[in-house]
Design a protein around this nucleic acid. Structure first.
Lengths: 340, 340
DNA sequence: CCGATTGATGTTATCGATAACATAGCTTGA
DNA sequence: TCAAGCTATGTTATCGATAACATCAATCGG
């Protein structure tokens, strides 16, 4: 039993395949009566259009490629979800590649995804190899880096400066009288967003002359709650006098908080803890975590809107196109793990 | 500047396009020397094969469609991630659709995804409309339902019985002397997995004669930690004498735990709490949550393996193919929120 | 009342790769 | 020594839709 194709529908209705094609896209100029008959026959025969053939012919894949380290991170997952919903309105689908924070993998995924002829690339802005950057730049399609605001963007950006986030947290703590700060993050040499927050931390500690830079890299990203728990005793051993720990993420901060409570270290009386991401847990735990809130849904929506604008209009030559930057707020949100 | 195609490469090397095609797939029989020259020219010209054309010709899309409520749920995200990694080995990519727990959306997504001619469908086994079931059955490709073990499966299954999970928790609590149990879950009439755990709960409470059935449906899925916090006082007001709450998920259970601690309700002395999913939080909080551990990575891997088996072999007629069931363990894991 | 315009539909060529078959040169073994 | 088989490559047809152009009838305005 051969698969039904457009021509089968056309024959049964008594029109040409082209008319069926037009009836199935909403833009086609087909008489109401004809369209009705066509849709009915489509239903009867259970016809499913072959978008692969359609894409080849129209030279539009209907895909947007998304590169993310993983979607095990709820805020990231939410951005992608929101992006998918936004793009759905114009019939674009998402093709996800998981980089696992490895630039080598990102390269490989990129070459694979590009074979699908995506109409745009959205990439969570962790480190990119020169080759990846070249691939993206030469792909001839819009690129959007999200969740950071890189100094030398490839094309469009929807995000905030992770480095500034790191610095701002230090200033925030300094203003509240904390003096001996430490950073708990991930081992990584490939330029993740966490690494840039760490950089901001280090720079600001140095700028404010807050003494030695204390950075503890516990494990490769993402740091789990339990890894963070394990880190606290080691950090206290290395630097017994620290009065604040800046964590790479909320789960990490929650791990530190749990361990501190287990060890009888008072939070925030003896130790301040700051997280990042405004994960659900940060509002719900006790005391609630001081953190940095990012509107992850908005990142997805803005990215979707930006792409719809760029892909919708008449084909503007890439060379003439203007890259856009959408600033997303990163709001330092004092809660219970820092004193006022 | 036209995009480079296979024939451009072929011309430059001085062979036919077919030889280039063969050189680019590892299976082709091409002399080592020719292949080397071809790969070099491919690199020089920056040729990127067009998989859309390839798929149309070979009638193999290289896609597996995945339908999930959302990936904001880390265990689900992990299953999908593991599935993607498993399928990557054979060059299959994943096409995700987010149903948001709405069967109507699932239907729509299904019709859209089927136009991409996926080679298989993986679906998180929440409720499916009759139309969805028909679409899947008639698609002529393997279907895998995951994260549950439905009574009337569509085709293959990789999962565990959510209903049994609900029942087992009740028995577990009853054995430990708990008598007045309540269930905290989601408002839903479309047959989610959570609803089936609730069903198992209800059946077992009735079977064991544990008195009135206490079910509190707080909000549409997924229940957030804060919604769960808000639920506890209401539940205690409705049923002041309950001694255990079975929660639809770990985040939900964590919310209840937090609120109980805030209200001064002793856990597990006055109130037992059971979660589901073995989320990271359940190990890290204090006391750690009694929960049901699911090996979500394994679900992804097993699904990948199953699909590789089915898609790899010579084309077996769908009618002759045997549906498979892979059982995944759901391990009730006693921790600190229930007494022994 | 007729040329111009509009609306609905048909025809043909094409998108870029690959399946299937064809071929030419080379080896091999009885 | 030659038929049979093998290796490496070429040729042709095809996958299923859609863009672009063509056509034909109905409508309309002066």
């Amino acid at each position: 039993m051969r698969r039904i194709k457009m021509e089968d529908v056309a024959r049964k209705v008594g029109v040409s395949a082209m008319t069926v094609s037009r009836a199935l896209k909403h833009d086609g100029v087909v008489s109401a009566a004809t369209r009705r008959r066509i849709l009915q026959v489509v239903e009867e025969l259970g016809y499913v259009p072959d978008q692969i053939a359609g894409s080849l012919s129209s030279q539009r894949s209907g895909f947007v490629a998304v590169l993310a380290p993983s979607l095990n991170n709820p805020p990231l997952a939410e951005s992608v979800h929101a992006l998918a919903e936004s793009l759905e309105e114009v019939g674009l689908q998402i093709l996800i590649g998981y980089t696992n924070y490895e630039t080598k993998r990102e390269e490989r995924l990129l070459t694979e995804l590009l074979q699908r002829r995506p109409e745009a690339i959205v990439v969570v802005s962790d480190g990119h190899s020169p080759r990846s950057r070249r691939l993206m730049r030469e792909a001839g399609i819009p690129v959007v880096q999200i969740w950071d605001r890189p100094a030398r963007p490839i094309d469009n950006v929807v995000g905030f400066s992770n480095e500034d986030v790191g610095s701002n947290i230090v200033r925030f703590l300094a203003e509240r009288g904390y003096r001996r700060l430490a950073y708990l993050g991930e081992t990584n040499d490939e330029g993740t967003r966490g690494a840039r927050r760490r950089l901001g931390f280090v720079r600001e500690v140095e700028r404010l002359n807050l003494g030695p830079v204390r950075v503890h890299d516990q494990a490769p990203p993402p740091i789990t709650m339990l890894q963070a728990r394990a880190a606290l005793p080691r950090m206290l051993q290395r630097w017994p006098d620290i009065d604040a720990i800046v964590c790479v993420s909320d789960p990490c901060a929650f791990g530190v908080l749990s361990e501190a409570q287990a060890m009888g270290v008072g939070v925030p009386s003896q130790l301040a803890i700051v997280g990042f991401g405004d994960f659900e847990i940060s509002r719900c735990c006790s005391p609630p975590l001081t953190t940095v809130a990012i509107d992850s849904g908005r990142i997805g929506h803005e990215t979707g809107q930006l792409l719809k604008d760029m892909l919708g209009r008449s084909p503007v030559a890439m060379s003439k196109r203007v890259s856009r930057r959408v600033a997303i707020d990163a709001i330092l949100t004092p809660r219970g793990t820092t004193r006022s």
